[in-house]
């Protein structure tokens, strides 16, 4: 494992910890999109079908379990926790995320490395992850003001994607036959979706002002 991939995994983990911290410390999930969290839950469940069939490393297995567990825990909290669910921005979080699930599954049925159960679900999870942040970004844009922890959550998620692209560039030059166009193209799309957010985050950081997204 190279340093870029490790940095990517760590920023991904930090983003999840920031999200858990926000929900547990403030007992609030305002500014967080339940739709995006549900999509991540589906992404991890679909991608980690190999959890019990292929062993790669203890590191991989533990991280997979953490990603599945934390995403399901957040979804549970936002839906059922007596206090937390009250702060859910139900009226603003109206993105029709099931269309994303359907669209990505159709795409995976046609564009995959091999037509097998696992490969189709793997491709589906890659496509869905690329667009899973959309409901979250739209919710932030609609509500305008972004609290610090929510802003940092999205920032770390974006950093994770950026590091993974560096990881692929590194692997492309250091490994033989490292072709992976499905995840590279999807990864580029996903990172591009964050570009706008990064820009406004940088502006607010430079001006030492609260993060505000234009309507």
């Amino acid at each position: 494992m190279n340093i870029f991939r490790f940095a990517g995994d760590m920023t991904h983990l930090i983003s999840i910890l920031v999200l858990l911290l926000k929900v547990y410390a403030t007992k609030s999930c305002s500014g967080i999109s339940l739709k995006t969290q549900e999509l991540y839950g589906i992404v991890f469940l679909a991608r980690y079908l190999d959890l019990f069939t292929d062993f790669i490393s203890v590191y991989n297995t533990v991280m997979k379990l953490v990603f599945i567990g934390s995403s399901l825990a957040i979804v549970w909290c936002m839906r059922f926790h007596r206090v937390v669910k009250r702060s859910y921005d139900r009226d603003v979080d109206t993105f029709r995320h099931y269309f994303l699930v359907g669209g990505c599954f159709l795409l995976a049925l046609f564009v995959h490395e091999k037509f097998s159960f696992r490969e189709v679900f793997w491709a589906f999870s890659i496509y869905l992850e690329a667009v899973a942040i959309l409901p979250q970004l739209i919710l932030l844009q609609r509500s305008g003001n972004v609290d610090n922890l929510t802003g940092q959550y999205v920032l770390f998620l974006g950093a994770y994607r950026g590091f993974y692209i560096l990881n692929w560039i590194y692997r492309y030059f250091t490994e033989d036959q490292f072709s992976r166009w499905i995840s590279c193209v999807s990864g580029l799309v996903q990172t591009a979706l964050y570009a706008d957010f990064f820009y406004y985050y940088f502006i607010s950081w430079k001006n030492n002002a609260k993060l505000k997204l234009p309507a």
Binding site: H12, D54, N60, W122, N167, R171, R180, I182, S183
Partner: peptide
Amino acid sequence: GQTSPVKDEL
């Protein structure tokens, strides 16, 4: 089967 390099990531 052998795990492809793509699938050793998270």
